[in-house]
């Protein structure tokens, strides 16, 4: 029933109170982020079990990973989260151009993250390390791969939002898509905050 009402409101039959639409959009996004956490949760559970079972393997094999590259990517992603957060503030203050530029910087950082990851994966493959090499590398490729997929999706979403921001679609009265895109991007950052120490900094 509620679904039908929402559909109708988008058809401008019964315009929804903008405040209600704003808060329910955000709530829906948080619900979605919850499912994302559970999606990664299965992998974190697998990680916990296998690390407890084979601590030596994790300790030994994680040394194949490049800590510096992992640390650089952590900094890139945290910085991109900062620029995304400031983009939201800019658009809420009606500074459309500034908001667009902040989102652009966020996207560039996201692409930079992808480039570093590309070189990392390349180095692994050239050392004949593949997802089927060991349980540790299965987890490494699966967790970082799923995370990378989220980065790509985030980049597409932010790309669209950036274009719309530059077109002036968002302002101090209506900034919901920018905020939701931001929430998604921060979640991607949040997951990496755990992946980095778990995979690159074992013991």
């Amino acid at each position: 029933m509620e679904q039908a009402n929402i559909e109708e409101s988008h058809g401008h039959l019964h315009p929804m109170d903008p405040e209600v639409e704003y808060s329910s959009s955000k709530l829906g996004m948080w619900l979605f982020l919850g499912t994302e956490i559970m999606l990664f949760g299965g992998l974190f559970a697998a990680y916990a079990i296998f690390r407890a079972k084979y601590p030596e393997m994790f300790l030994e094999q994680h040394q194949e990973l490049n800590r510096e590259m992992g640390a650089v990517n952590t900094c890139i992603l945290i910085f991109s989260s900062l620029t995304m957060a400031t983009a939201v503030t800019a658009v809420q203050k009606g500074r459309k151009m500034m908001a667009g530029i902040f989102i652009l910087i966020t996207i560039i950082c996201g692409l930079g993250f992808g480039v570093v990851k590309y070189f990392e994966y390349g180095a692994k493959f050239s050392h004949h390390i593949y997802p089927d090499t060991s349980i540790f590398f299965s987890l490494y490729f699966m967790m970082t791969g799923l995370h990378m997929l989220h980065v790509f999706i985030g980049l597409v979403v932010l790309g669209v939002i950036m274009v719309l921001t530059f077109k002036g679609k968002f302002n101090e009265k209506y900034s919901t898509p920018v905020e939701l895109g931001g929430l998604y991007w921060h979640l991607v950052d949040l997951i990496w905050i755990y992946l980095f120490p778990l995979l690159y900094l074992v013991g």
Binding site: L27, L31, G34, I37, I49
Partner: peptide, 21 residues
Amino acid sequence: ITWLFALFPLGLLFLLIGMTI
């Protein structure tokens, strides 16, 4: 309510990882 939506998955996550362990 947003806090509830944010924290509830964490409870599920602890349940998932904790019970598996």
